[in-house]
């Protein structure tokens, strides 16, 4: 049940500068990095530790039904929770009799989650657990994580997407070749940003500017999907495209407030006009779904849920 530690002895690949990280119980640690670095990290963890890395690449018995698969793993690992509860926990009860080769990607992903869950390991690493999964699957993962934390299991999650990292991780780090550094999560949102509030807020500003190479691009606020914070700088996000701004989050928030933008998370400012859906993952995990081509989801702090409901006049 002891939390595990990642240190120099484990990180031998040299793709990034080694770091020390203790992964504790009762909280999920997420590391956000680009896929190449993540790949190197997984390789190090695989070769230098015994901690199981769950990357849902395991084969399952495609000829057998969902129930037979789960029943096998249930018996193999000697899981104490009744089989029917496992099926319900992973929302597989309606597809129990369906052979796996007829199941969708997301259903197969949930069978994989069930296998990992039943293996009852004291510490686990998940690699891109919710990448490309549907809402139901993400929700079961968030719920599974909750239960695992209470057991307690030390959980480390590796993702290449900041939204996912903030959704699943209680403690989030960003890993770059230069090293690791914490990403601010909502817990420390009370402390004000260490910056000069001297930036003047223009009352009448119709364009927002970003730099691409040597060019200066001007955006109309309504076309922006949301603003994401990256290394303390604000990034304009429109569909898949990101444009770096030369301003901090706080400055941007002030500028855009008048255009119906809202700071829904420490690292995000959302264009309220573009919010399509408020997704509830669990009691205290929420996301906003944006009405753009790729249907991005961005995190919504639990402290902000009340506020945003008021803004939309929801009860």
């Amino acid at each position: 049940m002891a939390p595990f530690v990642i240190n120099q002895e484990i990180l031998t690949s040299g793709a990034f500068s080694p770091f020390y990280l203790a992964v504790g119980d009762f909280q999920a640690t997420a590391i956000y990095s680009d896929p190449d670095i993540q790949h190197e990290l997984v390789k190090d963890l695989r070769s230098n530790t015994d901690i199981p890395v769950f990357d849902h690449q395991d084969g399952l018995y495609m000829r057998l039904t969902v129930e037979s698969n789960i029943a096998f793993f249930h018996k193999w690992f000697g899981c104490r929770e009744p089989l029917s509860e496992i099926l319900v926990r992973f929302e597989l009860q309606h597809d129990a009799k369906k052979p796996l080769h007829k199941c969708s990607e997301s259903e197969i992903r949930r069978v994989c989650f069930a296998k990992y869950y039943m293996s009852g390991v004291p510490s686990a690493v998940f690699c891109e657990p919710i990448h490309g999964a549907d809402i139901k699957t993400i929700r079961t993962f968030v719920r599974m994580l909750q239960t695992m934390k209470e057991q307690p299991t030390a959980v480390l999650i590796l993702v290449s997407n900041l939204e996912h990292a903030l959704l699943v991780g209680d403690v989030v780090y960003k890993l770059q070749p230069s090293g690791i550094k914490p990403v601010e999560t909502e817990e420390d949102a009370a402390t004000p940003e260490p910056e000069s509030a001297a930036a003047p807020a223009f009352a009448k500003l119709f364009k927002i500017s970003a730099k691409v190479d040597e060019k200066m691009i001007l955006f109309d606020p309504p076309e922006i999907d949301y603003i994401e914070s990256q290394d303390g700088k604000a990034m304009i996000v429109i569909n898949n495209e990101k444009y770096a701004m030369d301003a901090t989050m706080m400055e941007t928030e002030k500028k855009l407030e008048a255009y119906g933008f809202y700071r829904c998370h420490r690292s995000y400012i959302v264009n309220l006009q573009k919010v399509r859906e408020i997704i509830t993952w669990s009691k205290n995990a929420y996301s906003l779904r944006i009405d753009n081509k790729i249907q991005s989801t961005i995190p919504l702090s639990r402290t902000k849920i009340q506020d945003i409901q008021e803004k939309f006049n929801l009860e």
């Binding site: 018995y61 057998l64 037979s68 029943a71 096998f72 018996k75 193999w76 000697g78």
Partner: peptide, 9 residues
């Protein structure tokens, strides 16, 4: 337990 699990499967 494990033998019978693999046997049934």
């Amino acid at each position: 337990r494990r033998i019978s699990a693999i046997f049934e499967k």
